[in-house]
Design a protein around this nucleic acid. Structure first.
Lengths: 215, 215
DNA sequence: ATCGTTCTGGACATATCTGTCCAGAACCTG
DNA sequence: CAGGTTCTGGACAGATATGTCCAGAACGAT
């Protein structure tokens, strides 16, 4: 098996790993994403990483640990990432809309129809898996918090009129996102998915004109 | 182990089962519901049913088969069942509202915080498990179909004004239901869950007055 | 080139799961 | 109560998972 360029770590001695950790975590992420956490064994992971099972245990220690790392890596590529990067004073509604659009686009474009790694994980692991469940709960709470701030900002800027308090509306938004991501495993048309978002946005008080514009 | 009353099957000869099949399926359902399909082994099922593993294989054949029966049993107790029982001419909005309320109530009251068996299954199995995945897809499609008919009826009766076609609005409703059920594993307050429904109902065009009334 | 360190391949012991099989117990029928 | 049928307990073989261990290969540093 040919050596793959390992990151040329600075003052490190000894034999370097025969694989790039980043690539390995990516492979793990894709596997977890496709099959779910419980359906993936340590052997599966080692295979996907093209390394020996012992090297896997040596480098990662456990399935849980890799999943944690995969989750972080996933956070860097998920279509809802922009929700966490809105600055005070910035327009909010276009962001909300474009995030929804991106979700529809990305999920429909995924040939594996895998939905969202975090949403799948919540359904599968929260309340069941002691180490990872709480992690996913946190991820969800973070998102709800971020959306809540966004909605406050939007109301303050008079971009929309909420039918409830911001915290509740934010949780409602998150719930819809989870549902949308989940159903995207079955509803495979981007157009259809996006059309499904319209009722919800209307409920949030987003004016109809905001829906046509690309962000 | 004391014999449990088996169903007194009519002209049946031979030794009767030492357990009631219905109870056994219920036990299986609760286990699947709590831990997910993959996390439950044949031994777990046999234990939950208080029978021998061989008796389990003898009576059910496979995990998949029990899951199928558990699903049917679940269908008889799920809070969204009323969606399938609306008659032509009947008022629709009160049903939609009360179903949502019931979901909030039932999910919050479940001490196991298990969410919805079908929704969990969709996230875990669709696109992964060959025999059960399609089953769950069907369940979802059925629901979307039922809701679509309901929405048409509601529009015809001028109970609400949809922002899109009925088929899309129905899928949107289903997506929200999935999200609501899933998030109910984390958001444990009935009141909070119900409040989260308000934005979505507004988006569907349900007038605010309809939300206060109990069904 | 040699030394010290780190990674790799492969093996080991243990645990759990799966599906099947059968002798004997339990039961209904006549 | 005898005969036929069906269920139960327990065992079996094969597959797969887990976590650990170590001899030796591969490499950076000197």
């Amino acid at each position: 098996m040919g050596r793959k360029a390992a990151a040329p770590l600075a003052g490190r001695t000894g034999r370097p790993p025969g694989f790039a950790r980043t690539d390995a975590v990516d492979a793990a992420m894709n596997l977890f994403w496709k099959k779910g956490f419980r359906a993936v064994s340590a052997s599966d992971l080692a295979d996907a990483m093209s390394i020996q099972r012992s090297s896997f245990y040596n480098s990662f220690g456990s399935r849980e640990q890799v999943f944690r790392e995969a989750l972080q890596r996933y956070a860097g590529q998920t279509p809802d990432a922009p929700l966490y990067r809105v600055r005070p004073g910035e327009a909010v509604v276009p962001i909300l809309v474009s995030v929804l659009r991106d979700i529809c686009r990305v999920r429909a474009a995924d040939p594996g129809a895998r939905g969202c790694l975090v949403c799948n994980g919540i359904a599968e692991l929260v309340g069941v898996e002691k180490t990872i469940g709480p992690l996913l709960e946190d991820a969800m709470a973070n998102m709800a918090g971020a959306v809540e701030r966004l909605l406050r900002q939007a109301v303050q800027r008079k971009e929309l009129t909420l039918p409830t308090d911001a915290a509740t509306a934010a949780k409602s938004f998150v719930a819809f996102l989870i549902g949308l991501n989940t159903i995207s495993k079955v509803v495979r048309s981007e157009r259809q998915l996006w059309a499904m978002c319209r009722p919800f946005l209307r409920g949030l008080g987003v004016p109809g004109e905001a829906l046509g514009a690309r962000a």
